[in-house]
């Protein structure tokens, strides 16, 4: 006996979608947020995401442990971030150009080494059933939560606190806002940016592992389909604030579920328009919050795109 949720299926599906789909957006945008707060842009996170997805799945398959897969993906992301940070130390190297080339390189590496892992089925990450109290199977399914999602939420809060109230956070912000001031304070901007980029890369790697090891839970060459790029854009949308990154990621996750959910309750005309909903929403919010009189609020002063 199944209960028919009727139109309630739509909000339930959007909630479930927000929980299921948002995690990669969240991790990549938190990572990018950290990197950009130090005054550098890493556009290569799409490549890191795909590398993380591949290495996470591959390691999980080879070792039989999804946890090892996630840790391995984080490590791969860290190393890849270090490479970006190291390249950007050299005079005259543009971080955006390096990012784009590293995005393509990352995809190439992942496709090359990922070939043997497309077919096999690797151990996946488990989920926690938070819907046990409900007798609606739809709600139970929507509230299947992966621990990485919870870690992501905690991380957003932690990063916000760290950037605001700790010495490390202050150092990152100084470097991001003014290289000159940082030097005057005897901080080495390149070193801070190197590690901020590396940490950002590690987070993106974890985001990738979530894609391949939890949802949708398989490795293939089209697994990301641009989510890493969207997440980088979300950082601007979130005004470089980790808590806003969380809301933005949830919004995009939920909006992504809207199209299929509306079709499933019979509202099927014009589904191409529903699929464009997140982007229309982004445009709307950006226009609504923009101003011709002042610079973008919250933008680090040293950022290549806002200078």
């Amino acid at each position: 006996m199944t209960t028919d949720p009727g139109l309630w299926a739509v909000p339930i599906a959007v909630l479930g979608g927000a929980i299921r789909v948002s995690t990669p957006f969240l991790f990549v945008s938190l990572g990018e947020c950290l990197t950009e707060r130090s005054g550098r842009i890493n556009l290569g996170l799409e490549g890191t995401l795909i590398l993380g997805a591949m290495s996470g799945y591959g390691l999980s398959y080879l070792t039989g442990s999804a946890t090892v897969g996630v840790l391995g993906a984080a490590l791969v992301g860290l190393v890849y971030g270090l490479l970006h940070g190291w390249l950007c130390r050299f005079k005259g190297v543009n971080d955006i150009a390096v990012g784009i080339s590293m995005m393509l390189l990352g995809m190439g590496i992942a496709f090359y080494f990922g070939k043997p892992f497309i077919q096999p089925t690797a151990p996946r990450l488990p989920s926690i059933p938070f819907g046990w109290w409900s007798d609606s199977p739809q709600l139970q399914a929507a509230l299947q939560v992966n621990v990485l999602f919870l870690i992501g939420i905690a991380l957003a809060v932690f990063l916000a606190w760290m950037l605001r109230s700790t010495r490390i956070g202050l150092t990152i912000r100084v470097v991001g806002d003014s290289t000159q001031s940082a030097r005057a304070l005897a901080i080495r901007p390149d070193r801070v940016r190197l590690w901020a980029t590396a940490a950002g890369g590690a987070l993106a790697g974890i985001g990738g592992a979530y894609l391949s090891l939890y949802y949708p839970g398989s490795w293939n060459e089209g697994i990301s389909s641009g989510q890493g790029l969207m997440a980088v854009a979300l950082v601007i949308f979130a005004r470089w604030n980790p808590i806003n990154c969380l809301w933005a990621a949830l919004l995009f996750g939920g909006a992504g579920a809207l199209g299929p959910a509306l079709q499933s309750v019979g509202i099927s005309e014009g589904y191409y328009l529903f699929y464009a909903a997140p982007y229309v929403l982004t445009l709307g919010i950006l226009i609504a919050t923009s101003s011709t009189e002042r610079a973008v609020i919250g933008a680090p002063g040293e950022l290549n795109i806002t200078k």
């Binding site: 894609l211 089209g222 299929p260």
Partner: peptide, 26 residues
Amino acid sequence: CQVIFTGEWSLAVKEAEATNALADQG
């Protein structure tokens, strides 16, 4: 038969969402 179009030949996340939406609808 409930049908959900994803709009693309290969779009892993949307295919997973569509499958979940079908299961949600019974």
